[in-house]
């Protein structure tokens, strides 16, 4: 087995670029969905909101400034090839340094506080980022990175359904979560759903689902159909762009699943705003 050496500085530079790019440049999948919704939206106010969001994305890209002032908390899913050895520092430090440089040098807002309850003092560089690292075969490092604003994060939810709840229970919980969120999470939203695993696995799957492009489908046709069905149901709710009424409440629903226990059927819903910022890289 050959060992590949990767310099810590390369990881730092890659992560920095991912975070600056995702904050300045809207994803192609999202932009297409916004443009298509703008064409079909029947509410005049909704149509106007969608036009302003498209214009906002244009300005952000042109001036290389953030799409939204809430540049979020950094979350990274990393597949670390076991043949890779890091030279010049620790892997974790290299990633954190990349996030630190993006937020301090890229005019991104620093929104992370130290202690959640008592101190709440800003760390001033948006670290720590949250890393989910898995070790995989190979000699590459795959990084899928997102930044999560909390207007939508606060509207997310996990429920420990049990098997008798069935598909109807799953649908009801997802739709109830979206209905409760209403106009708050900056609709049109992207809905990430995680089903299965354990309590925390379902939540991680839901997060991962928000990082998948919305023009892709779950590989299992049954879940792909469920994604379509839920998207239609959400868009019949009428919240519309910015929650001011209209046809377009969601741009996409992405579902990820995992095997679970005989007694359980955990479901997590992670709501994401219309910017749904994420980028990927392979080192």
């Amino acid at each position: 087995m050959e060992i590949r050496t990767v310099h810590a500085a390369e990881i730092t530079e890659t992560v920095k670029k991912l975070y600056m790019d995702m904050n300045y440049f809207i994803g192609e999948d999202i932009l297409c969905a916004l443009q298509s919704a703008q064409q079909t939206e029947s509410s005049p106010i909704g149509k106007s909101v969608l036009s302003q969001l498209i214009e906002n994305n244009r300005i952000a890209a042109e001036e290389e400034i953030p799409i939204c002032q809430d540049t979020g908390m950094a979350v990274l899913f990393i597949e670390y090839g076991q043949q890779v050895v890091i030279d010049g520092g620790s892997f974790e430090d290299a990633v954190q340094e990349g996030v630190r440089r993006a937020y301090t040098e890229g005019y991104l807002r620093k929104s992370v506080v130290t202690d959640p309850v008592f101190d709440r003092i800003n760390t001033k560089d948006n670290t720590p980022a949250i890393l989910y690292t898995t070790i995989v075969p190979g000699d590459q490092i795959r990084i899928t990175a997102g930044c999560k604003g909390f207007g939508s994060e606060n509207m997310s939810s996990v429920k420990m359904l049990t098997p008798s709840a069935g598909i109807d229970g799953v649908k009801a919980f997802i739709l109830d979560t979206v209905r409760y969120a209403g106009p708050n999470p900056c609709p049109p939203i992207v809905v990430g759903v995680g089903i299965g695993g354990t309590f925390e696995k379902a939540a991680m799957l839901a997060k991962k689902a928000t990082l998948r492009p919305i023009n892709t489908k779950n590989e299992d046709p049954r879940y792909a159909a469920l994604e379509d069905e839920l998207l239609s149901a959400i868009n019949r709710m009428g919240f519309g762009p910015a929650g001011l009424g209209g046809d377009c409440t969601a741009l996409g629903v992405n579902i990820e699943t995992f095997p679970t226990h005989i007694a359980g059927m955990p479901v997590a819903v992670n709501i994401c705003c219309h910017a749904a910022r994420h980028q990927s890289a392979v080192i």
């Binding site: 969001l53 214009e55 906002n56 001036e63 400034i65 900056c186 929650g243």
Partner: peptide, 13 residues
């Protein structure tokens, strides 16, 4: 008043 959530670059002008 509602300002449009996420239209931050546009509003800043």
């Amino acid at each position: 008043f509602a300002a449009i959530g996420g239209a931050a670059a546009l509003i800043s002008r």
